[in-house]
Amino acid sequence: MGREKKNSIRSRAVNFLLVISLPALLLIFWEIGVRNGSINGNVIPAPSKLFDTFIELIKKGKLQEGLLISFQRVIQGFLIASVAGVTLGFLMGIFASFNRMLSSLVNILRPIPVVALIPILIIILGVGESANVSIIVVGALWPILLNTTAGVMSTDRKLLELAYVYRLGKPKQYFKIILPSALYSILTGLRLGVSGAWMSVVAAEMIGATSGIGYLIMFSKSLAQAANMYVLVLVVGIIGYLIDKLLLMLQNRISKRFVAGRG
């Protein structure tokens, strides 16, 4: 027991070192590069400068303010996309005719990058919250919809046969057999949907907003505040990473409880 525990602590430490080593090395060379002049500090400021800027942005409250607004938009857009995506995806998974009706439309709209839709949505909805939220909805919708459909369609046919022979009603089949069967896949879709929403909010704010973290990036660029810009972009990346980690943990916890026997 003791040895096993020690080993697992050691292997965790090794893992951590492996994960951290490349970014750390990059930061060290970056810092050295700026200090000895081989990297232009005005274009690419040193990590130490970025850290100072980060602290300064927090002290002024600008970062939190921007993030709060972006989060609010993400939550709104994500909720709408979840309801729409799960509902449509579920119906497409169950009813073949509904699937055929929608699938060509979905397959044409899906490959369009969200960025390409921003001007169109702004023209239709005008600059404002509804355009911002709509962009996030589009960015989150597809993975939710497609994963829900796939999950529904992967329901074990043998369980549906059982339901038929035992004369269980349709609602029971849909909500007690198909929905739990699809749950893991739906959660995967929601997780990818949040990532999509986060990327879309930054894009939307860079183009058509006067607040939020995406706007702050564009604002820094126009004032040539390189350090601010880098800090904000890094924050966007780190938050995206944390959101994904958090949701993966949530997904595993939920599926352990409700999708027993799935590994």
């Binding site: 046969e161 022979v165 739990p180």
Partner: peptide, 27 residues
Amino acid sequence: PDEKCTMIFQESRLLPWLSVEKNIAFT
């Protein structure tokens, strides 16, 4: 399917997320 007639399949066909008692109550 006739209500007087029931089938036991080659595989148990239990719902993996339901306990033994809930599986039996399910039908």
